[in-house]
Write a protein that binds this DNA or RNA. Sequence first.
DNA 1: CGTTACATTTACGTAAACGTAAAGCACCCT
DNA 2: AGGGTGCTTTACGTTTACGTAAATGTAACG
Lengths: 138, 138
Amino acid sequence: MTNPRPSEVNDTLTIRQMCDAYDVTPRTLRFYESKELLSPIRQGTKRLFTRADRARLQLILRGKRFGFSLEDIRQLLDMYDRDGTNEAQLIRTFDLARQRLAQMEAQRAELDTAIAELKSQLTMGEAALATFRRETAA
Amino acid sequence: MTNPRPSEVNDTLTIRQMCDAYDVTPRTLRFYESKELLSPIRQGTKRLFTRADRARLQLILRGKRFGFSLEDIRQLLDMYDRDGTNEAQLIRTFDLARQRLAQMEAQRAELDTAIAELKSQLTMGEAALATFRRETAA
DNA sequence: CGTTACATTTACGTAAACGTAAAGCACCCT
DNA sequence: AGGGTGCTTTACGTTTACGTAAATGTAACG
């Protein structure tokens, strides 16, 4: 029953509601705020997360899935905020994204190789084990 | 005195030669030794890296490129050179390898998802940029 | 008014993979 | 003997992204 008044259409979430909604810990949200990735408003001593904060958090979490560092993400968010309609900034953002994509595809190719090699090792090992069993079955 | 005996074919490298050959630092090689990833022989106080060490280092570096932790790599290396005369141990080794393989395939699946998502973002973003350009080309 | 439930700040802890002094052998050259 | 070079060990420092107390505050429930 810690609800804010239901009549008051509250567009903000408490830290706990944020955690439940996005599956993060309070520590994470405070950490992001300390890194200037989020800037929730304060109601007294407590934080209230707005729509904007939620949008930013979604971008942060997606960026993390892409393997961007929080520092990369902060810069991307800053660029987005300053002027989303600045062509030069948009292009820089795309460049960063394309670089990451290239890295990820290279990583994917190497991973494929590693998987194939490991599979091969497994196959050979199992054949050796079968031989071992035939030999010791005397 | 310090001449290597002919039986010990001069097939070994000093730490510096290793560093040059594989583009790593002495610190790295000592660190790997402390983690039991390498076990160079000692000539007095100095290290001598054998063919086996070089082979292992190559595997280590490849594993790192694949994004595996050194602990993962250590386990894989054990798998590679274990002198499995013991069937139970062989089977345990295979289990480990299969687990790694499953992890790798899961990782690849995640990577695929992220790549697809990022590609989609890029495509949409570029379309938006094109629109933006047409609109501002008044 | 006391308890409960959540919130806050401060700040040390963690893991990986080394970097980076600091201080000392060991050997070669001159 | 002095100097230089390279190797050695020991051990604290660095980075990222938080975890985990500890001490305290605040608001509502009963």
